[in-house]
């Protein structure tokens, strides 16, 4: 039984993937997502090894930029603010550091943050939203009122306050993002649950004597996954977008550690003479966010067609 379901699930995944490559927008999205996470995985592992397994001469901090064109931290005063060229694809900043290398170096942080925030968002949102939709009445009232409290704040501003309270660090930025992110999933899960509750197979499950938790976790969760999956895919990009704003406002990793948002912000002072400094990291953010939006839309179209 399980072998069969894993098999068919695998096949379904493969089929969905194949259909994603058929339309140009979703293909673009898929390529961007794969490049982004693929690169982040490789680079992230290197950074982790370099940081935690210091073991000269084989493992030194240099390992973290072994794959990059340049050392992202090393100033080079001969080539400050040089425009994009084949030597420096995205130009250099005011200290002569290669912007392309810094952009690549920063990718794993964004990749990790996007996944962690969306995962926790789905988890917490599911824990509150699914029971709310399933049981209704008091549970729904309590859970959704609680959710509405968080939704009343403009997300970015709540995140700012949380980070200002807890302290400025990437980890607190993640906490802040999770806090502002789960409420929309609670709403989504509740809505899905309400929709699913009216369908036949839940009645059948009830009749067969399954417990409430079993029904929610086994049947409803799986049935709502279609909607959640495309939504979460788009959200991966949105998390990166909002994190870049936090980082732009100085609430991300402290300098000299490169980050997409903070690079745009430090380039602001040189906007007139070095447009690339702000524009290109900003364009990278935009590209990644667009990629996830296209991919999410593609997934939605395919899964909606299957229902």
């Amino acid at each position: 039984m399980t072998a069969v379901t894993t098999y068919s699930r695998k096949r379904r995944f493969a089929r969905t993937l194949r259909r994603l490559t058929r339309k140009i927008p979703s293909l673009i999205g898929l390529v961007i997502a794969v490049l982004f996470y693929g690169w982040s995985l490789v680079e992230g592992i290197l950074q982790l090894i370099a940081k935690y397994f210091f073991y000269p001469p084989y493992v030194t901090p240099k390992l973290a930029w072994a794959l990059l064109p340049y050392d992202p931290f090393e100033p080079s005063f001969q080539s400050t603010l040089s425009p994009p060229s084949f030597i420096h694809l995205m130009g250099t900043d005011e200290l002569g550091r290669d912007i392309f290398s810094r952009v690549l170096y920063a990718a794993p942080t964004d990749a990790a943050i996007s996944i962690v925030v969306v995962l926790f968002g789905v988890l917490i949102g599911g824990l509150l939203g699914l029971p709310a939709g399933y049981f209704g009445k008091g549970v729904e009232e309590v859970n959704m009122r609680f959710t509405d409290l968080f939704l009343a704040f403009p997300a970015l501003i709540l995140a700012l306050v949380i980070e200002a309270t807890l302290g400025r660090a990437v980890i607190f930025a993640i906490v802040a993002l999770i806090v502002v992110w789960w409420p929309s999933y609670a709403r989504l899960f509740r809505g899905e649950m309400l929709r699913i509750k009216n369908q036949k197979f839940i009645d059948a499950a009830l009749l067969s004597g399954l417990s409430d938790t079993a029904i929610i976790s086994r049947h409803a969760l799986r049935a709502s996954l279609n909607t959640i999956l495309s939504y979460a895919t788009i959200d991966l990009g949105n998390v990166i977008l909002v994190y870049s704003i936090l980082s732009f406002l100085g609430l991300g990793a402290p300098p000299p550690y490169p980050e997409w948002g903070s690079m745009v912000s430090s380039g602001l002072g040189y906007l007139q003479e070095a447009w690339w400094y702000s524009f290109l990291p900003g364009a990278v953010i935009t590209g990644v966010v667009i990629g996830f939006a296209l991919l999410g839309d593609g997934i939605r179209d395919i899964l909606a067609g299957e229902q």
């Binding site: 704003i245 602001l268 007139q272 447009w275 702000s278 524009f279 900003g282 966010v289 667009i290 939006a293």
Partner: peptide, 22 residues
């Protein structure tokens, strides 16, 4: 709208500032 949705607000501002002001 896909573009405006995906572009960070600061980049929108910078682009406008660069092209329309400077």
């Amino acid at each position: 709208y896909l573009l405006t949705w995906s572009i960070p607000p600061f980049l929108v501002a910078i682009i406008l500032q660069y092209f329309l002001a400077y």
